[in-house]
Nucleic acid binder design. Structure first.
Lengths: 367, 367
DNA sequence: AAGCCATCTGTAAACGTTTACTGAGTTGGC
DNA sequence: GCCAACTCAGTAAACGTTTACAGATGGCTT
């Protein structure tokens, strides 16, 4: 792995100055003969432009960072899936940070923008503290925040609307005749937990249903927490006829416990999840879920960022992505039609002619 | 966003030379008084060290890239989940590339190592062509390949053993008394497709079962392909009693179609998936699946890479991760015990005292 | 034929660090 | 009290680019 060639090496080889080499490589007007010599030399030497030196001089890295709480969370992954191709098309690389929802880590990331290893940042913090806002104000590169931020904060911002989302779900359950609707929520000191709790209370009121503390159970956002919470709920209020779950994982835990308890879904208890992750369509019964538009939020965020990288001076914008209720069997009782046509068999499939993008696994026979 | 301070600014402010500033910031021996002055100035100015300039001089970026075929694929995500924290702990940032399994893109990534924007690369190519190997040989930074690579290739390599994996699955099905075991495979020109096809044929032979072309169906690696393939299989061979699916998504499609056709799983047809993604545990019936150890492979890869970054001269290593059969209801008929204890309700959960790491969703009430 | 202009190329500085080298000042040995 | 040795700090070069500026060359115009 000997040291690679630089423009100096090329300049020598081609018998020109490094300025000429640079000009040719950047497509600036140059005499044909010079272009030919430089390109020939570069080709022979297998020259590749050093991105670090280039960044130092040009003050751009063509890298963008995305910081999320948990890299294993399907919600963030839906965002990454949108963000990556857009960045790639615009000539940027994607740097990933997983902060484990630790505020100090998030602030570190903001602070490290001063290192100038990226041109911009998309961040999705779980909680937004004063310290976040302070650091944000002093950030040395454009930032887009996915999630709520106090009004008046001068930053590009993309929000979901889980208030309306919860409302959609409760309206749906109410229309189905459900009247004892429990809430299985996550921790109240997280942004989603707090707002979903409040939205639940509000929606009940508007529907003319009484708010009952006994119908609310709080745990963390995982499947096991959902299972535990629902077991407790069933013991306390055996007559519940619907469950509003603060995310899909909680809802899956709920399905586990309901099945074990012999309750039919949705006949006895209807279940609604939230986030509409791919798990919702995979479960059985398939899960009605409120999509908060993770994909759309990711897309909006990256677009805001790219736009700002072009025009750093424009006013900050706020984009709110509307929620959408995706009805499946856990409330309707009917499995949705399979999302594909069985009659059309892939032509030539037996010949192995499939175009073969994405396969689901890497591997290697042991030999 | 005015230009940030540099060591020059600090040097002026502190009344010392830039060399002293650099020494202080790097912890090299310096007089107390100087240290104090420099740190004070740095603090006041909110100095953050420029990573690009530092990289240029030191010839290391503290970045590592991971290139995968498809960022949406749970198999790669399982790897990323392992890789990211290890890198972070070692002081490296993670750069993600999604190549859409396009060979040219993969080769581009290898080639771009010459830009020196990362110190090393972990790559998981779907197909390995001559061109890959050529470029690999000339790569300007350490590379670890996840997936098969021809014997003798001088590169750190992590492999799954899908051959043994398929074997485990077929042994299991055979032991359950199944004799007409179909294969739903992916494209034969991918590494996984090819080797799973071969392993299926081999395993049948060792089990003394006849190989029958009519029992093999090929599509792509998605749920819809699985559904289509199984519909065709059922039409052609109504008497099949087991399905070996080349990945979990295909298996989910299979479950859809079997259910629609009124076949009971596993009584009439047993189903085995592959990769043991989180979808396998979420489906109903839950899916027996062959784990190829994606997480372990990710971990092994990043460890190989970090090791090589320390000692560039050591011999290339090969790590093979053994497969594991995870038996669930789609073959055994019994839902596995819930992986959590329902009796222990989270203490204090109602008080919202949960530590609240990872929540499943970002959001923001519309106001 | 002189002067001008256009076109191209080379020189050198700059981006923000790290670090080899040198020299100044201090300490200590004898 | 002189010289050696040591400690610390400053100067300057280097990392590999881009680019402002100036110089060179040649073709036109007049």
């Amino acid at each position: 792995m000997a040291d690679g060639p630089t423009i100096n090496t090329i300049a020598e080889r081609a018998g020109v100055s490094i300025a000429s080499v640079s000009r040719v490589l950047n497509g600036l007007p140059t005499r044909q003969e010079t272009i030919r010599k430089v390109l020939a030399a570069a080709e022979e030497l297998g020259y590749v432009r050093n991105a670090v030196a280039r960044s130092l001089k040009s003050r751009r890295t063509n890298q963008v960072a995305f910081a999320m709480a948990d890299i294993g969370n399907p919600v963030y992954l839906a965002m990454v899936r949108q963000i990556q191709p857009v960045l790639k098309a615009a000539g940027y690389r994607l740097v990933l940070h997983s902060t484990d929802a630790i505020a100090a880590d998030e602030i570190d990331v903001l602070h490290s923008l001063g290192e100038r290893y990226v041109d911009g940042l998309i961040m999705s913090p779980l909680r937004v503290t004063e310290a976040h806002l302070e650091t944000l104000k002093a950030a040395r590169a454009p930032v887009v925040i996915i999630g709520s931020v106090p009004d008046g904060t001068r930053v590009d911002n993309v929000r979901a609307d889980s208030r309306t989302g919860v409302r959609l779900a409760l309206d749906h359950l109410h229309a189905l005749g459900r009247r004892r609707i429990a809430l299985v929520n996550g921790p109240l000191d997280t942004v989603p937990g707090a707002s979903r709790g409040a939205a639940y209370a509000e929606a009940l009121e508007e529907l003319g249903l009484p708010y009952d503390d006994g119908l609310v159970e709080i745990g963390d956002f995982y499947r096991a927490d959902g299972a535990r919470a629902v077991a407790a709920l069933l013991a306390r209020r055996p007559d519940i006829d619907a469950l509003m779950c603060a995310n899909d994982l909680i809802a899956l835990g709920a399905l586990d416990v309901l099945r074990a308890a012999g309750r039919r879904v949705p006949e006895d208890v209807a279940v609604v999840g939230m986030d509409d992750t791919e798990l919702a369509a995979a479960s059985y019964p398939s899960l009605t879920s409120v999509s908060l538009g993770s994909a759309e939020r990711g897309k909006a965020a990256v677009e805001l960022l790219l736009d700002r990288l072009q025009r750093g001076d424009r006013e900050p914008r706020l984009v709110t992505v509307p929620p959408r209720l995706v009805v499946r069997a856990s409330t309707s009782g009917e499995e949705p039609a399979l999302p594909y046509d069985l009659t059309t068999n892939t032509p030539g499939a037996l010949a192995g002619a499939a175009p073969g993008h994405q396969s689901s696994a890497q591997e290697g026979g042991a030999g």
